[in-house]
Design a binder for these strands. Structure first.
Lengths: 191, 191
DNA sequence: TATATTATATAACATATGTTATTCTAAAAT
DNA sequence: ATTTTAGAATAACATATGTTATATAATATA
């Protein structure tokens, strides 16, 4: 063995995460991480083959944090839970959230299509959504995912009215869910 | 006078715009623009003091294009017009749209608060929106702006269902507007 | 035609960044 | 106690990029 480890892999990822959140993912550089840790770049290259490997680890970290946020939401209503978790991520890690959405193409594309069936299944258990066809449920879900992305994006960009707090955001999300569902019911009544 | 001008200011901005649309705004470099034009960097520095000035000119160009798109929409319904123009921009210039939204903080923040009153005024002329208070109109408008941003963002990221075309997007935008307005009417009836 | 002007090309300089080779040193193994 | 090992610091190399100084050449004007 050699001398004691002073800079761990975890610490390096943490530091990269901090830079990502304050300056954006693309602003991460090896030297910046090193300076923030009070080290040289050597420990980074001991722990990561190159900058790409470090970025991968950072993405994993980000995903794990977002999953943690989702676990912490537990109303049982999947709409509310996913919406609120996304909202929290957008508010608490706004810079990273924006970067992620932009670079999401590959991550989220497959992700959504995998989540879809599970969510539809959840919706079918909800008594309030009783009697809708799968097509109708899909439309409701899509509308809500669109709204939720828009809301998170606005929150992350500080584009909502000044006085809006997290509760207001959750309320408008929930209110719009009601709008969409109620209107779907009315349309159903017209069949 | 000197020799004929071979590379104009406009041509430089055009080239920067092309790079922005294919690789992202941050991928623009002086040398890349020059190479794409078949010149050296000299003509760029004759027309622009530095890279910041070029970026300003590029932003102006982008804003002017988006305003052009808005002018081309003319249903008279401001919801539809703004929504469709935003959607077209997001689809036709997706990379730039994403960059803009992310870096929008400063541009859009004031912009929205200036647009708000004019839009509310427009809404008050709409017979379908008759009888709502200003507060109710504001909520409807906010919901629609949120949905429209989410939809544009999804379109720009290719996150919508594969078979979705522009008409489908315009339809779901319009359908959600109906949902929000219809539900507001129902709530109004309950007062 | 000769000169002045100026658009353009070229090359250099300064800085930022990823990466690597070398050196140093502290801890473990012998 | 000596040797080996491996983490860390340092400096160098390669490349990318903004910027500028200088050289070249085309065109208007005298």
């Amino acid at each position: 063995m050699g001398p004691k480890v002073k800079f761990t892999r975890e610490q390096i990822i943490d530091t990269a995460f901090e830079i990502a959140q304050t300056e954006g993912i693309d602003s991460i550089t090896m030297r910046k991480i090193a300076e923030k840790m009070g080290s040289s770049v050597a420990p980074i290259y001991v722990n990561f083959k190159n900058v790409d490997e470090l970025n991968e680890a950072l993405i994993e970290r980000i995903i794990s944090i977002s999953q943690q946020l989702l676990k912490e939401e537990n109303t049982g209503n999947p709409f509310r839970d996913i919406g609120n978790a996304s909202l929290r991520f957008a508010i608490e890690y706004s810079v990273i959230f924006k970067d992620l959405v932009i670079k999401s193409g590959r991550y989220m594309q497959g992700y959504d299509e995998k989540m879809m069936p599970a969510l539809i299944e959840e919706m079918q258990k909800d008594p309030e959504l009783n009697g809708f066809t799968v097509e109708e449920l899909k439309t409701i879900l899509l509308k809500m995912r669109i709204f939720q992305l828009g809301l998170s994006m606005m929150a992350a960009n500080g584009l909502l009215p000044k006085e809006y707090n997290k509760q207001d955001m959750m309320d408008i999300l929930s209110s719009t869910a009601d709008d969409v569902i109620m209107s779907a019911k009315l349309r159903r009544g017209l069949r």
